[in-house]
């Protein structure tokens, strides 16, 4: 927020593109990307609710789009982004309590976030497809 009207050119710390990509760094970036994707994804949630509040026709349109293969693909991505961002949030929550900051723990937590997000997404969809087909 603090923008000085006249800036002096001072040396800056190295930018992102200078660094070799590290696994923990990539996971941090993915956390931000999934957050931004979910931000715009809430439009789909509101569409669902407004369609249900609207008319059977409006709901039918929503259901047809959501049930199509492309709709299901988007919802699969939505599920993964949500779970990945949620697990990433838990990771940050642990760090807030100064847990898991060691060099091995950091990598382990990052791997657990990625693996957990994929496994849980598949579990959620397996349950969904088993219940609903």
């Amino acid at each position: 927020m603090a923008d000085s009207p006249l800036r002096i050119e001072r040396p800056l710390s190295p930018h992102l593109q200078i660094y070799r990509p590290l696994f923990t760094m990539v996971m941090s970036i993915v956390h931000r990307i999934t957050g931004c994707a979910l931000y715009f994804g809430t439009v789909l949630l509101v569409w669902w609710l407004l369609a249900a509040a609207g008319s059977p026709d409006a709901y039918g349109t929503f259901a047809a789009v959501a049930g199509s293969w492309i709709g299901r693909l988007v919802l699969l991505g939505f599920t993964w982004a949500l779970i990945h961002h949620a697990l990433g949030g838990v990771r940050h929550f642990m760090w807030d309590f100064i847990i898991g900051f060691g060099p091995k723990e950091r990598v382990l937590l990052a791997k657990a976030t990625l693996a957990g997000s994929i496994v849980l997404t598949l579990v959620v969809w397996a349950i969904g497809l088993a219940v609903k087909g």
Partner: peptide, 21 residues
């Protein structure tokens, strides 16, 4: 809000699965 979202998202996923289709 992140903590609240975590709990609410679990309930929300259950609601969506039960209402899908």
């Amino acid at each position: 809000t992140g903590l609240a979202n975590l709990l609410l998202a679990i309930a929300f996923i259950c609601i969506v699965i039960s209402l899908a289709g």
